[in-house]
Design a protein around this nucleic acid. Structure first.
Lengths: 342, 342
DNA sequence: TTTATTTACGAAACCGTTTTCGTAATTTCC
DNA sequence: GGAAATTACGAAAACGGTTTCGTAAATAAA
C-alpha cells in the first residue's frame, strides 16, 4: 500500500492540511474529537509524514552526524552505542561518516555536513588532523559540533575526553613498578591530542621516577598495517630492545603480540605490554592483556547529551560543558600481574 | 560566514534560480562562460545547496539506512566498512540503526524509514525476527531493501549470505576429526536464518559421520550476557559435559573461554572450541581460536552495490541478485591443531 | 445583554530546490 | 534567404509539509 500525503488525507477528512499538521505536532488548538478522527484515518490510509518536507520547513533535519576515523574499533563502536542511545531518546537519527584517518576525507565530510543534512556533529578527528579551519568554518555556519576523545585544542566548543595524560602516566609507572627499565611507546600521530597527551604522561612518569629514556623507544606508526608490523618488529629486534611497552592505540595490540610470537619473545617475561584498549577479549588473550580502558559508551553518551542540549538552546556556552571522564587501568598477566583493577 | 541560498546567489549574478540550479546539476544547456561565473561567485559567497530542499523536490534523500542488531561486533563493523565504501562512491550517506536484537525496535525503525529519509535499506534482522510483514510493507511502499547475513527467507528480494550450512558442517566435521565425540552447539535464536542453517550443518555432519547426538548439547542463549554465562557454565559442568563446541555467534566466544577458565577446563585438551567469528584477535587468544571467518566487508560491499543497482533501475529482479559468498575455516590451537586455513 | 476572550479551525505564504515549458537569439540546412 | 533546429536562459509550478494570521462560533466576563 503506497502511502498518501497530507493533502490527500485532508481531502479525505474534509479538513484543511493545517489542521492535520497540527494534529501531528500535538498542537493544543485541536479538539480531542478531530484529533482522534485524524489519527484513525491516518493510520488506516497509511499516512506517513515526509521527513524532507518537514526538515525543509522546520530547518531541522533530525539527524546528527558522527564523524570518526573507523568503526571496526572497540572504542568507536562502543561510543556509537552511547550516541545512538541518546539520539533515539531524542527522536534523532544517526549518520555515520568514516574518515579512515584521512584529513582530506574529514574536510570533505564536514563540507557535506553544511547542507542541512545534519543538525549537529559529534567528531573524533583523524590522526592527520593538525589544523582546524574546516571545523571552525562548520561551527560559524551554525552547525554545533562537539568533540569526543580526539579533540582539537584550539576550537572553542565542548570536548568530552578521558584523562589521557594521567592514565598514561599510571600505565608507565605500572610498567616501571613491574621492573621494566627500558620502556617503549607506540603512537600513531604526532599532532593528535590524545597521543601527545599519552606521550606526555609516559615522559612525565619517566622523569618523576628517574627512569632513563631513549628516544629510539618512541615509535610513530602509520595507517598501514604491514608497515606498522615491520616497525614493531624492528623495535623489538634491536640489541637493546625494550622490556616494556605502552601501546597508545588499540589496533596495534595484535601486531605487538604477533611480533613477539614471531621473534620468540615471551610476554611478560621478555616484554611487558599495556595497551589503551577496549577489547572485550583483553582478558582471554595469550597472555591476558593489561589495559587502560576508556569509558567509551559513556563518552559517546555524554557528548550526545551535550549536543542535544546545544540544539535545544542556542548560544549555550559549550566550552563550559567540556568533561573529562576517567579511564581505568586493569592490570593483567601481560604486565606480570594477576588480574587486578588499579 | 553564514551561507546563502540559491535565490540570493541568483540575484547577485543577475541570473535566474533555474540557471544556477542547472549549473550545479551539470546541465548541458548552460554555456561554459556562465557556468564559470556561477561556480566562482558560489564559492566566494559560500553557497551550499540545501539537501532537504533537493531531497524533497527530487524525491531522493541520498541516504541509505543500515539496520543491524549491534555495532560492537566485528562482523557488523566490517560490513559497515564495506557498505560505507560503496555509499561514498555513489555520493550517498549512511544512516545507522541498531535494533539491539529487538523485533519491536526493528519494526519501529522500518516504520520510520518510510518517511523519505532513506532511499533504500540494508538489513540484517534481529534474533527475534521470525516474521516479515514489517519488511514486506516497507518494500511495497517503494523502499528497496536488501538483506545481508541474517535474512528472512520469505521476503522476495536480494539476499547476500555466506555458506552457513556448509561451513558449520565443515566446522563440526573438523571437531569430529579432531577426536570430539560429544559436541555442543551454541545458538542465539531458533528463528534466525543463519543459526538454523548452522544448526542444520551441525546436525548433518553428525548424521553423515555417524556421530551420536545429544539434544542437551544444543543450547539456546539469550540477549543477556549474565544469563548466557551461566547457561554456558551449566553446559560445561554437566557430568557428561561436551568435549567440543561449535559457537555460532562471535559474542559468545569470551564467555566460553571465561567459563573454561573458571571451571578449570583446558582448551583444547578438555574442550575443543570453534567459533563463527571475525575477531581480529582470534590468533592471539589463549589458546588461539579456530574460527569460521565470514567475508564481512565483502558482504556489506556487495549488498550495497546491489542496492545502488536497484536504485538506478527500478523493477530490477532483486531475487536474482542474491549471492552466497563463502566463509573460510581457520583451524588454530583451540581445536588442537596448529594454525592452518582449511 | 453587551463585550471580551477563548476555542477550533482554514487560507495562504513559506522553506529552497528542481523541472517543465516557453522563448528570444543564434546557428544550420536546403 | 527562409525554414528548421539548436543554444542559453527565465518564469512558474511543483515537492509536502509548517506556521502565521485571520475568523466564525462558543464561552466567559461585565
Amino acid at each position: 500500500m503506497r502511502h498518501i500525503n497530507i493533502r490527500e488525507l485532508a481531502n479525505e477528512l474534509k479538513l484543511s492540511v493545517s489542521t492535520i499538521s497540527k494534529v501531528f505536532s500535538n498542537s493544543h488548538e485541536i479538539s480531542e474529537e478531530t484529533r482522534q478522527r485524524v489519527l484513525e484515518t491516518a493510520a488506516r490510509l497509511n499516512y506517513i509524514p515526509n521527513a524532507n518536507a518537514s526538515s525543509l520547513r522546520r530547518k531541522k533535519s533530525k539527524n546528527i552526524g558522527v564523524v570518526i576515523p573507523e568503526v571496526a574499533d572497540s572504542f568507536f563502536s562502543l561510543a556509537i552505542n552511547g550516541i545512538e542511545s541518546v539520539a533515539k531518546e531524542n527522536g534523532y537519527h544517526v549518520l555515520i561518516y568514516l574518515t579512515h584517518e584521512s584529513f582530506e576525507n574529514e574536510k570533505n565530510i564536514l563540507k557535506e555536513c553544511q547542507g542541512g543534512r545534519v543538525d549537529g556533529i559529534l567528531i573524533s578527528v583523524s590522526r592527520e588532523t593538525a589544523q582546524s579551519d574546516h571545523i571552525n568554518e562548520l561551527i560559524s555556519n551554525g552547525v554545533p559540533l562537539i568533540f569526543f576523545d580526539r579533540v582539537c585544542d584550539d576550537v572553542e566548543t565542548a570536548k568530552i575526553t578521558t584523562d589521557d595524560l594521567e592514565s598514561s602516566y599510571q600505565a608507565t609507572s605500572h610498567l616501571i613498578q613491574q621492573g621494566c627499565g627500558n620502556i617503549a611507546f607506540l603512537s600513531i600521530s604526532n599532532s593528535l591530542s590524545i597521543t601527545s597527551k599519552r606521550l606526555k604522561g609516559y615522559l612525565q612518569a619517566h622523569a618523576d621516577l628517574k627512569q632513563k629514556m631513549d628516544k629510539e623507544n618512541i615509535v610513530l606508526c602509520t595507517n598501514d598495517a604491514v608497515k606498522n608490523y615491520s616497525l614493531i618488529k624492528k623495535l623489538l629486534h634491536r640489541k637493546n630492545r625494550p622490556d616494556g611497552i605502552v601501546v597508545s592505540v588499540e589496533k596495534l595490540t595484535t601486531p605487538v603480540y604477533k611480533a613477539c610470537e614471531e621473534l620468540n619473545l615471551k610476554i611478560p617475561q621478555d616484554l611487558k605490554v599495556i595497551c589503551f584498549s577496549n577489547l572485550e577479549t583483553a582478558s582471554i588473550l595469550n597472555p591476558s592483556l593489561s589495559t587502560i580502558t576508556q569509558p567509551a559508551f559513556e563518552m559517546g553518551k555524554v557528548a550526545a547529551l551535550i549536543l542535544f542540549k546545544a540544539l535545544q538552546k542556542q548560544n549555550l556556552n559549550l566550552i563550559r560543558e567540556s568533561l573529562v571522564i576517567p579511564s581505568v587501568l586493569v592490570a593483567r598477566r601481560s604486565t606480570g600481574t594477576t588480574d587486578i583493577a588499579l
